[in-house]
Amino acid sequence: MDGREELERRLTDYVTSLRRYALVLTRDRDAAEDLVQETLTKAIAAAESWQPGSDMRVWLFRIMHNTHVSDRRRHRVREDAKLLLPEPVQESDPTRRLELQQVLDALDQLPEAHRLPIVLVALKEMSYADAARTLDVPLGTFYSRLGRGREALRKIMNGVKSTKLKLVV
């Protein structure tokens, strides 16, 4: 595989991750795809400013995040919508799907400042330092928001669990 092919392969992986992040930001598939495309368009325009050797993935996530923040009005953020798992292509465990949807629902209830650190770390691609740079916040702020967000998520999920138990009883 030559350098160009390898770069294209990595870029495809990054765009998949960007699409996931865009879905969390916009909660809408069409709006998310628009945001991905705008991110790529801006990246093409800024390609000369990208430093070879620096982390391309963090660079792209920063462009997406800044585009979302600065252009929030134009991008449709469906406050009333929620993140929904797509219909499974093949048969899957319904209990597992329910658990995954519950955690997405709980995530939806968090304020964006707490939601985004959790998502960036859950994408399993970023260190805390990378994620803090993406969100343009100091590392200490990132630590704090991640901790508070996860604790809030845990409490919401505990509530879901106890409601289910009551229903069963």
Binding site: R4, L7, E8, L11, T12, V15, T16, R19, R20, L23, V24, R29, E33, V36, Q37, L40, T41, A43, I44, A47, L83, L85, P86, E87, V89, E99, L100, Q101, V103, L104, A106, L107, I118, V119, V121, A122, L123, K124, R150, L153, R154, M157
Partner: peptide, 30 residues
């Protein structure tokens, strides 16, 4: 919760047709 969220985020963008405009932009960026 971290595991479940990682799995859910993976599934969120795991399906759907390829958007040709996105694919073209991806090639141009590469």
């Amino acid at each position: 919760h971290k595991d479940h969220l990682g799995e859910a985020l993976t599934e969120l963008a795991a399906s759907g047709p390829v958007n040709l405009k996105t694919a073209r932009l991806e090639k141009r960026l590469a």
